[in-house]
Design a protein around this nucleic acid. Structure first.
Length: 423
RNA sequence: GGAGAAAUGGCAGAGUGGUCGAAUGCGGCAGUCUUGAAAACUGUUGAGGGUCACACCUCCGGGGGUUCGAAUCCCUCUUUCUCCGCCA
């Protein structure tokens, strides 16, 4: 959420920046500024009424204390209309503030200066590419065929138990997945991220804190009886650790990593591109989250990008990094780098990580602040990234590491799997 | 699930209708002293709105009510603790 004060002072710049998202925010911002002005005017009136009421009350108290009950009772009568007024003003203030809030929730984050203009993923900018794309024999299979061939992932069984998009991992498939999780967590821990385990269901306030609500309401599974949401990413519970917190500046950088399953309804996305592990309702992910001083957040973002690179180098997977264009950029992000692994057998790139800086957008919703050197509280910056999303890494490994004899296991994973071949 | 108790500032903990945004202790910050540190002493130290700056307003778990006046009384929700039951 953008800060009102920033909107007040930079309306034109914001409109211009948001046009990169193909959004014309001018009338929205005008409405906001108008409501903001109204809100402050009503607040001023209410404050004045309350101030008078307060001083009358004090006076009455004094009069009673000194035994002048008659005078006190006279004053009492004067409070009636003041109370009525302040009640009305209070109601007016509440509705105005709510309307204002609802509008503020509709504005996405301002794209970073480096974000390219554009409307679809075709306008994203490739910024880095590394790794060798293996040449596979002609009978190379996509991962869903390999999964069947070696009996390591059972999609049909998942359908029986839950539905499409809930695969069952079996035997060496399950073990490989667990190995990846452990490896990622170890790698992140070595890089200074503190491992934590968090709830997999979150309340509404948390959903608003990181911006999934109200923007992506329909994308999350909702448990109606308890009014909780299944997390679509660990970002939500992990970042919400800091909701309503004022952290110590000395604690920066705050670096956390956590493994969670992720649940996404993925309403409306069906078709050939979602076969196999490509798009699931439930999948595993290891996430890294950082809370940073505003002056350090882009340095931190680059650090996170380098970290994910290193993991992919370790796994010897061919990948590229793209900078998302304005049209593809997530609602809450200022700048996002996506990592994509080339899946040889499918002949396409699969997104396996998304690393973003949210600047103060989430922090403003979360009320996540820190005390600066002058003792003033300021909004912190939040960042996060996947390191990594499991299914597509798994797909990439299965497809790129397949041989006529079976699927080889990347060397760094062998200590975790205990085997070096799926056959 | 049943019965009871509680929720106050970073933490601990007072405060049962008026001058309480809130005693006191610890912690934090600044200073004095010291070669330096510790100790001791002194001062300072919640958040938000509002203002050029003041004034002023709001907040004692959330919401509502009583009252001229609520941290304090009432209702309700949530959470925590104790006991009982059940249970991975």
């Amino acid at each position: 959420m953008l800060q009102l004060q920033v909107i007040r002072e930079n309306k034109e710049e914001i409109i211009k920046a948001l046009s990169k998202r193909n959004l014309d925010a001018s009338s929205l911002l005008d409405n906001i500024l108008q409501l903001d002005e109204k809100r402050r005017a009503v607040q001023t009136q209410l404050d004045a009424a309350l101030a008078e009421l307060n001083s009358l009350s004090k006076e009455i108290g004094m009069l009673f204390k000194t035994g002048k009950a008659q005078e006190a009772n006279l004053l009492k009568e004067k409070t009636g209309t003041l109370k009525e007024d302040s009640k009305k003003l209070g109601e007016d203030l509440n509705t105005t503030a709510e309307e204002l809030q609802a509008l503020l929730y509709q504005i996405p984050n301002i794209p970073h200066i480096s974000v390219p203009a554009g409307s679809t993923e075709d306008d994203n900018e490739e910024v880095f590419k590394e790794g060798n794309i293996p040449t596979l024999s002609g009978d190379a299979l996509p991962h869903w065929e390999l999964a069947k061939k070696y009996d390591i992932i059972d999609f049909e069984l998942g359908v029986k138990i839950a539905g499409a998009g809930f695969p069952v991992y079996k035997g060496k498939g399950a073990r490989l997945q667990r190995a990846l999780i452990s490896y990622f967590l170890d790698k992140n821990t070595e890089a200074g991220y503190k491992e934590i385990q968090v709830p997999h269901l979150v309340n509404e306030a948390s959903g608003y804190g990181t911006g999934q609500l109200p923007d992506k309401e329909g994308q999350m599974y909702h448990v109606g009886a308890d009014d909780l949401y299944l997390i679509p990413t660990a970002e939500v519970p992990v970042t919400n650790i800091f909701r309503n917190e004022i952290v110590n500046q000395k604690d920066f950088p705050i670096c956390l990593t956590g493994y969670t399953p992720c649940f996404r309804r993925e309403a409306g996305s069906y078709g050939a591109h979602v076969r196999g592990l490509n798009r699931l309702h439930q999948f595993d992910k290891v996430e890294i989250v950082r809370v940073e001083h505003p002056s350090k957040s882009y340095e931190a973002l680059n650090g996170m990008v380098e970290h994910v690179k290193e993991i992919l180098r370790d796994l010897k997977l061919p990948y590229r990094i793209i900078r998302l264009c304005g049209g593809d950029l997530g609602f809450t992000a200022a700048l996002t780098y996506d990592f994509e692994v080339f899946s040889t057998a499918q002949d396409r790139w699969l997104e396996i990580s998304s690393v973003s800086n949210f600047e103060t957008y989430q922090a403003n919703r979360l009320k996540l602040r820190f005390k600066d050197e002058h003792g003033k509280s300021q909004l912190a910056h939040t960042l996060n990234g996947s390191s990594l999303a499991l299914p597509r890494v798994l797909a990439g490994i299965l497809e790129n590491y397949q041989t006529p004899e079976g699927i080889k296991i990347p060397e760094v994973l062998i200590p975790y799997t205990g085997f070096n071949m799926i056959n």
